[in-house]
C-alpha cells in the first residue's frame, strides 16, 4: 500500500474541488457542527447548573455523566436507531436515515462531554467567584450566566473535544444515517466504504483530508481563544 498514492489522492481531492467530495465534506461539517451547537445549547447551562447546585444524588449524576463520556458511538447509534425506527417510539417523525438522525446521534455523543467538562470548569470558577457574587446578591442558578461567560475560553476547549469526538466517529452515523450516497454519506462513512471497496489510497486520502480539517478547526479555535484570553485575562 502506497502512502505517496494516498497523499496525491488527498491533494487531488482538495485541489480538484470535486463537487461530490465537497458535498461529503460539507455534510460532515454541517452535521457535526450542528450537533456540537445543540450539545452546547443544552449542555453548557446544564453543566453549569450541576456545578453550582447541591441536591441528593448529585454525585451519582456526576459519575453517570462522566461514564457516558465513554459511551461507545455504536451504542449511541443503536439507541437512536431504535428510537427513530418506524417501529420505534419516535418512528412517526420519519427521520431515520436522514442527516437529522445523524445530528441527534452525535448530539447524544457530544452532550456528556460538554456537560462534564462544563461542570468541572464552572465548579472551579464558582469556588473562586462564589463569595464575591454572593456579596453582590447573586447566588446559585443566577450566577450561571456570569460563570459561563467568564469560563468561555476553557469551555471552548470542551466544545472542541466534543467536535473531535463527533467528527471522528463512524459507528453512530453509519447506523442512523445509512451511508446513503449524496445524502447521508459523511467523510468517515466514505472512508469505511472505500476501505471495504479496497480503494485504500482514496480511503487514506480522505483520512488525510479529515485530519487536516480537524487540525484547521482546532488551530482556529485555539488561536481565537488565545487572542481572546489575552484581552480578558
Amino acid at each position: 500500500m502506497d502512502v505517496t498514492a494516498a497523499f496525491s489522492e488527498a491533494f487531488r481531492l482538495i485541489l480538484g474541488a470535486d463537487p461530490k467530495f465537497l458535498g461529503i465534506v460539507g455534510l460532515s461539517l454541517r452535521v457535526t457542527l450542528t450537533a456540537v451547537l445543540l450539545a452546547a445549547i443544552i449542555g453548557l447551562p446544564l453543566g453549569a447548573w450541576l456545578a453550582v447546585s447541591r441536591f441528593p444524588g448529585r454525585n451519582l449524576v456526576i459519575v453517570l455523566i462522566n461514564g457516558l463520556m465513554g459511551l461507545p458511538p455504536v451504542v449511541a447509534g443503536l439507541v437512536v436507531f431504535l428510537l427513530l425506527s418506524r417501529s420505534g417510539p419516535l418512528g412517526s417523525w420519519g427521520v431515520l436515515f436522514t442527516p437529522t438522525a445523524m445530528v441527534i446521534a452525535q448530539t447524544l455523543l457530544v452532550l456528556p462531554i460538554v456537560i462534564a467538562l462544563t461542570r468541572g470548569t464552572i465548579e472551579e470558577l464558582w469556588r473562586e467567584y462564589r463569595e464575591h457574587l454572593a456579596s453582590l446578591g447573586v447566588s446559585g442558578i443566577r450566577a450561571v450566566p456570569t460563570l459561563l461567560w467568564d469560563g468561555r475560553f476553557a469551555l471552548a476547549t470542551g466544545l472542541l473535544a466534543g467536535f473531535g469526538r463527533a467528527s471522528a466517529e463512524v459507528g453512530a452515523v453509519l447506523i442512523v444515517g445509512g451511508n446513503i450516497a449524496n445524502y447521508t454519506r459523511t467523510m468517515t462513512t466514505t472512508i469505511a466504504l472505500e476501505t471495504s471497496k479496497g480503494d485504500l489510497p482514496l480511503a487514506l486520502g480522505l483520512g488525510i483530508v479529515l485530519m487536516a480539517l480537524t487540525f484547521l478547526i482546532n488551530g482556529l479555535a485555539f488561536g481565537a481563544s488565545r487572542i481572546g484570553q489575552r484581552f480578558a485575562g
Binding site: T146, D150, G151
Partner: peptide
C-alpha cells in the same frame, strides 16, 4: 453594605 476580600476576586474581564 458591601465587602472587599483579602484576595480581591477579579472577573476574567476588563
Amino acid at each position: 453594605h458591601a465587602m472587599v476580600f483579602q484576595r480581591p476576586v477579579m472577573l476574567r474581564r476588563s
